[in-house]
């Protein structure tokens, strides 16, 4: 049984780390706030879930750590998207508008969304 768990956990952890790296790169390089928010959103939900899953598959003597990790996963899956949503709404209300790729001019928005 543990023969399957060990590589599976490694795969999950590797995938999670890869997503973290790409998300971080996007977070650093993207032009405007909303693109960065998207990149950061990816790392917060998918990469976190993968890494926690990978940790859960690690062999431990008692089952308590697995349960705690499940709690953390549930809480993060609840709170991260809400936080990103609240962040986007607050930025929009504060007047931050999406920019074009080189981050200079505001993108022309359909009139309804001004």
């Amino acid at each position: 049984m543990s023969a399957i768990l060990e590589p599976l956990s490694s795969v999950c952890l590797l995938l999670g780390s890869f997503l973290l790296l790409t998300g971080a790169l996007g977070f650093l390089r993207f032009a405007d706030f909303y693109a960065r928010l998207h990149a950061c959103g990816v790392t917060e939900t998918l990469a976190t879930a993968l890494i926690i899953l990978g940790l859960m598959l690690q062999a431990t003597d008692s089952a308590l750590p697995q349960f705690k990790l499940l709690l953390i996963l549930l809480f993060v899956l609840f709170s991260s998207p809400t936080a990103s949503h609240a962040l986007a709404k607050a930025a929009w209300n504060a007047g931050v508008r999406p920019r074009d790729r080189r981050g200079r001019r505001d993108i022309a928005l359909p009139p309804g969304d001004r």
Binding site: F27, C40, T43, I72, S80, A83, S84, V96
Partner: peptide, 15 residues
């Protein structure tokens, strides 16, 4: 808001 986003990202990564 970029700083708030950075702090939020920082928090989840610390977890």
């Amino acid at each position: 808001f970029d700083r708030v986003l950075a702090a939020n990202l920082f928090g989840t990564k610390t977890v």
